[in-house]
Design a binder for these strands. Sequence first.
DNA 1: CCTAGATCGTCAGTATACTGTCAATCAACA
DNA 2: TGTTGATTGACAGTATACTGACGATCTAGG
Lengths: 170, 170
Amino acid sequence: MPSKPAPPITIDAVYAAPGYLFRRMQQIAVSIFMEECKAFDLTPVQYAALIAIHTHPGIDATRLSAVIAFDRSTLGSVIERLQAKDYIERKPAPEDKRIKLLYLTKSGAAILREIIPAVERAQARMLEPLKPADRKALMGLLVQLVDLNNEASRVPLRAEDALEHLGKGG
Amino acid sequence: MPSKPAPPITIDAVYAAPGYLFRRMQQIAVSIFMEECKAFDLTPVQYAALIAIHTHPGIDATRLSAVIAFDRSTLGSVIERLQAKDYIERKPAPEDKRIKLLYLTKSGAAILREIIPAVERAQARMLEPLKPADRKALMGLLVQLVDLNNEASRVPLRAEDALEHLGKGG
DNA sequence: CCTAGATCGTCAGTATACTGTCAATCAACA
DNA sequence: TGTTGATTGACAGTATACTGACGATCTAGG
């Protein structure tokens, strides 16, 4: 068998490349999210951060970044904005002066309850063009791929990190 | 059948949501691309722009944004950076003073030839954890979904727009 | 010809993302 | 105890992305 010919240098090759499709789909997903949630003034990232803080009250910023796989530097400004909107508050940790613990405010808990249906609509809309069986297949493959590629990203997901501040209770 | 219960408000629901998986996969894809191409000082977006200009010499910025589905505002700074690196040049259009036509320089054409193998490696690595049959299945579903959701994004892909400056030759 | 509307590039403003660095602080160990 | 090394939050710098607006320019219609 002869060696594979050099791939052509055209934009059509890009359209079929995984990286391009992932980027495109992310753009579309954000667009749909913002459209469904425009009444709430919350971005997808801010939403994920609120959910994570709701699930793990008293988490600190570094652990939060591991739990939602967001860059720690980026997360600083996200937290600032959520605090400015009065959706979260930061309290200094009594035992470690470096750490600031994150908690939802009443406003934060309320907006979370209210936005959930819009978020559910957005998530459904992203997959709507596919047949139900294809939706399941795609999600299954994506969950696999993201999990198996976890270490390839600069900020791997570490869901279990959230439990450390509770005393390492396995 | 009773109505569906309200979904629980936990981070685990986010981990399984399409929007979160698309974001995560995009982060991973960019990370792999940058790692494989770190010798070339080109981002994924800059690479796509170069390929598109190579495929459509003399395209203008607005049409380029339609061809690679990037926001027109964002593209302005991308073009500036490519120009600063001497990979492209802009020439005023003789027939329309608003338009600046984009061309690859010799450096741009050269770096494009050189970076292709690294890009191919990056694209392959993104899907590597999956079995070959699953890779094909995932790509097939993604191509479908991105295409069917094209209008849902703020900047839909308009590949055919690139031909307009050639005299509407259909 | 002349005006109304569309288009082009650009800019300001906001929000992710990542790299690298820094001071303050904490933990571990000699 | 004293110092080394790790951790935390913060910051500067770069690069996408999107919104909305703007002047310059072109096109179409009257």
